[in-house]
């Protein structure tokens, strides 16, 4: 579905992504794990065009999307759920959802939008209860659901999920992960997920990549990565590195 080859992204003079190549197949959940500042979010932002790469190739369903503006990339079916959720706090839940379909918002489309909002509500029933509430007053978990719901409103075939468990209590983030796997099972959405909580992400994903200082150092099945000693030590909090090594 998505194939990225040799992407190089810079922040000014800082070379943030060095020849990154990854792919996501239809129906897959792919996890991208790595330490803080390794470049995980930059990969997502490079795909969605927020920080366009200077070089490389990104083929989405046969079309090169590199260099396209973000709004067009969204229209083509890629939707990003940003780190920290970034919901529109002063607006109501329903308005937030409507804004997710901004690119096809018109009087003519109103009935179909209504139906889509209903679909989101049936997926996240709690949002229906809160439909007229101001989004900023929602709990963290509910806000995350809203952010996912808002992304679903653009009918994406590929969802880019950035740190969905950030700032959530462990119990709540468990719920969120359960919902993400429901997205895959029920809506057949393909997902590229970036996560600090490497273990949870890998348990959810089919495959994973490990990124380190802007370079991919491993591509493996999720189980393979969960079993990898280096990954365990660096990202799963198991088995500390001995001082004399």
């Amino acid at each position: 579905m998505l194939r990225i080859k040799n992407i190089n992204t810079y922040y000014g003079k800082v070379h943030a992504l060095k020849n990154v190549s990854i792919h996501v197949n239809v129906g897959e959940i792919v996890a991208l794990i790595g330490a803080n500042g390794a470049g995980k979010t930059t990969v997502l932002n490079s795909i969605s065009g927020i920080t366009p790469p200077r070089e490389g190739e990104a083929i989405f369903r046969g079309v090169n999307i590199l260099g396209l503006p973000t709004n067009q990339i969204v229209k083509m079916g890629i939707s990003q759920i940003p780190e920290g959720r970034q919901i529109f706090a002063p607006l109501t839940v329903s308005t937030n959802l409507e804004l997710g379909a901004y690119h096809r918002y018109s009087r003519k489309n109103k009935p179909s939008l209504k139906k889509d909002i209903e679909d989101v509500f049936s997926f996240f029933p709690i949002l229906r209860e809160r439909r007229n509430q101001i989004a900023g007053t929602l709990s963290g978990g509910e806000q995350q659901m809203l952010a996912i719901g808002r992304a679903l409103m653009s009918k994406p075939s590929l969802l880019l999920l950035d740190e969905p468990s950030m700032g959530l209590a462990p119990m709540i983030s468990k719920d969120i992960f359960r919902m993400i796997s429901r997205l895959k099972d029920e809506l057949k959405t393909t997902i590229l997920i970036v996560e600090q909580n490497a273990k949870a992400a890998l348990q959810l994903a089919d495959r994973g990549y490990v990124i380190e200082t802007g370079k991919i150092i491993m591509e493996e099945s999720s189980n393979g990565l969960l079993n990898n000693k280096e990954v365990q030590r660096a990202y799963l909090g198991k088995e500390k590195k001995e001082i004399w090594e």
């Binding site: 190549s21 991919i216 491993m218």
Partner: peptide
């Protein structure tokens, strides 16, 4: 086509690892 993408990704990660 998919195979070549996979190969290339794996070549890159192998090179990064051996260099390290």
């Amino acid at each position: 086509e998919e195979l070549e993408q996979l190969q290339w990704e794996r070549v890159q990660s192998t090179l990064n690892r051996v260099y390290k």
